[in-house]
Design a protein around this nucleic acid. Sequence first.
DNA 1: CTTGAAACGGATGAACCATCCGTTTCAAGG
DNA 2: CCTTGAAACGGATGGTTCATCCGTTTCAAG
Lengths: 194, 194
Amino acid sequence: MTTAPLRKDAARNWQRIVEVGRRLIDQQVPIQLNEVARAASLGVATVYRHFPTPEALIETVAAPGLSELVRHAEQAVASDEAWPALRDFLYAAVDAQITDASIASVLASPQPALPLTGELLGRLNDLSADLLDRARAAGAVDPSITPGDVASLLCGVTFAARVHSPEGVRSRTETARRYLDVLFGGLHTRPPAN
Amino acid sequence: MTTAPLRKDAARNWQRIVEVGRRLIDQQVPIQLNEVARAASLGVATVYRHFPTPEALIETVAAPGLSELVRHAEQAVASDEAWPALRDFLYAAVDAQITDASIASVLASPQPALPLTGELLGRLNDLSADLLDRARAAGAVDPSITPGDVASLLCGVTFAARVHSPEGVRSRTETARRYLDVLFGGLHTRPPAN
DNA sequence: CTTGAAACGGATGAACCATCCGTTTCAAGG
DNA sequence: CCTTGAAACGGATGGTTCATCCGTTTCAAG
């Protein structure tokens, strides 16, 4: 069941495709596998062989960023200050979505096309549920909020920061952060400390 | 400059197209003008003549709902209780977006394709800016919030309620309302009353 | 070096998009 | 009514995009 080792040329092309894909996703172009092939100077079939659908490519592009986010969540879980841990993780999650469109796309999609993505999302869910639980237990978050709510609201904030807001990652990051703060003012009940 | 009166058959077909369009939009199908023609049992050219792009059709479908929202905003402006007026308008706006996907689509799109839509959106913007101003003046809303923020956050809440949330307009409406309440808890500073 | 499995790429057929133009329908004037 | 010209119709058609298939090339194990 371990993924068969890729041939050298295949590995090189795989790399090339992912790089081109990342570049195209960054500039908000809706990915078309044919176009990716042209941009990578590869045959169409080569692209389709590695990534049967655009989603597969998007998820592959998103994987590193998603992993990093998981790592971030693990660190947060290690913290013993429940609310700051949750808050910082949410900041990081929104930041990642603004910075890397593929992450936003994966987080907003109903369910993953690749097993790897499912794995990462599962871990992310578990970790954020844990963070939320502890924040709730500390009385820092409204008890009616569910893990699903957190995930949805995260996507909502990112979406809000993209719609209408002036172009440029820089300003969108600030906008998103501001919106997250507004949301915190709402879902953050302040019994214990800060 | 008044729109030339439509011939009888043309008017009938226009109607048919809009009806079919509304039906397709309701079921989240991305509209393809060709498909609309097929579903309406009309020639492709007829559809393209009336609506050169999918956006034009979407905006036409959205117009009545948008008008109603404008009317709602006008009523709200007439109220003398600043915060409840703003709050109820926002409830209505989110409800409308969940109930009618074409409205959500228009509100989230960068800028309108039809003059009529531009007109309606302009009025909506002015009215909501007014509502926001007065709520701010009454000390009921954080002063850093701009009219643009309100528009974006509205779209964000709608988006959040659609992503991941269980199917069905009913539950999505409730979810959206809940999210809006969370947001209110955040942007609503409570100096005066309520 | 041989050899067979793996990967490559472009030609190709299917699907989709949007325009053009010959035909039909409408309604105003006789 | 009937005529007539303008307006609207519809589907055939050329252009574009999508994704598969298969003959050729490349890799690496023996």
